[in-house]
Amino acid sequence: MSAPQFDIRIDKAGKLTVKVSGVSGEECMRLSDMLAEIVGREDSREKTSEFYGPGNVRVSTSGQIHGHTHGA
């Protein structure tokens, strides 16, 4: 597995959008928690399709399903 990587955008009002990649699902969540702890407050978190690997499912923290599974 590759090293953990953060792609961070800080907009001109200070709001941050961070993509965490290169780690397993559980570690990805742990690193997202760490970033929130450093910065302040987490507004939202979304697991991308990459999080699950093949299957194209995207689930927000509110539990809403935004995508679909193949072969369902």
């Binding site: 941050l16 959008t17 290169g22 699902g25 990805c28 997202s32 910065v39 407050r41 987490e42 991308t48």
Partner: peptide, 13 residues
Amino acid sequence: MSSVCVLTPIVIG
């Protein structure tokens, strides 16, 4: 595997 989070900074210092 990845996730995207949106964070609001709290300015404490």
